[in-house]
Amino acid sequence: MSMVEPHKRQMTMEPGEILRRTEAFVRERMSGEGTGHDWWHVHRVRRVALRLAGEEGADAYVVELAALLHDVADHKFHGGDAGAGPRAAREWLSGLGVDAEVTEHVATIIAELSFKGAGVATPMSSPEGRVVQDADRLDAIGAVGVGRAFAYGGSRGRPMHEPEAAPEMHDSFERYKSSTGPTINHFHEKLLLLRDRMNTPSARRMAEGRHRFMEQFLERFHAEWDGLD
């Protein structure tokens, strides 16, 4: 069933109205979600993505639409289906009468965006995609990233830490998707790798402090785990 009712479809809708309706749709769909992939995650990603777009000269309209829709059908919550997000974005934007080229650009960004494993490259094919990917990854690190990691791990029934379970550097998206390791391992398998995978100079600068915070957090975590502090 279409996510946009026929009587709401307007083929000449202005960009500002498209953004307003998209925000309302995403906010309603994702509010109250408890895994760290909620509306406020989207809000933060949009805000940072627009900041980066201004600094890097990317198309702000495409960036904002992609940031708003990037997690509306995340593969983690749709049976591992990596195509769910792009399909949902296409359906929503087409229903609003968004230009086909813009719609496809947004869907492509969402298809390319996700981290797929330590050994898997995830290049973005446009400046707008690079900006949105950076903003999404910045929200996965630092203090907010630490909170989100444990929220997601808890939602999946994963232990915080298993000292005998070594981190796994996944060499395929399938192995990464099927991982069930403890949350602390996720820092080594993904989060600590993101600083060096930022696309833009602006994001690399922002990532430095967030990366240092995670290193300090892990040092403190292990000291307390071992009863040393």
Rank of each mutant, 00 (worst) to 15 (best):
R44L: 12
V45W: 06
R210Y: 09
G227P: 07
M11C: 04
T122M: 06
P127V: 06
D229W: 15
A58H: 05
T180D: 13
E14P: 03
A140Q: 07
E28W: 03
G227L: 10
E5C: 08
V102E: 09
Y176T: 03
G80W: 09
V120I: 07
S202F: 09
F217G: 01
N199A: 06
L191Q: 03
A111D: 05
H37N: 02
T122Y: 01
K116M: 12
Q10R: 11
G153F: 03
S172D: 10
H211S: 11
R197K: 04
V144R: 10
W92F: 15
R27N: 09
L69E: 05
M198T: 12
M198F: 06
L19A: 15
Q10M: 04
H170Y: 07
E17K: 13
A58M: 01
D38T: 00
S178Q: 13
F115M: 02
G54R: 13
E23N: 00
A89P: 02
G79T: 10
R175T: 08
S125Y: 01
K177M: 12
G80Y: 01
W40D: 15
E101M: 13
P86W: 02
T180R: 11
M206Q: 13
L194D: 04
E14G: 04
V42G: 14
P6C: 11
H161F: 13
L19G: 13
R130E: 13
E56K: 03
A82R: 13
P167K: 02
I18E: 12
S172E: 06
R205W: 04
M198G: 02
N199E: 07
F115T: 00
V62Y: 02
R29Q: 13
D134H: 06
G227V: 09
D74M: 14
R175P: 01
E91K: 05
V146W: 08
W39N: 00
H170W: 08
G16L: 12
R175I: 03
L65S: 07
P127T: 12
L113K: 04
G154L: 12
E219W: 04
R46A: 15
G153S: 05
A89K: 05
F187W: 00
V48A: 08
M11K: 15
Q216K: 09
S114Q: 15
W225G: 10
D99E: 15
D38R: 04
R137V: 08
Q216M: 10
E17G: 05
L228Y: 12
A89C: 04
A107M: 05
H105M: 02
V48H: 06
R197L: 11
D139M: 07
V4E: 08
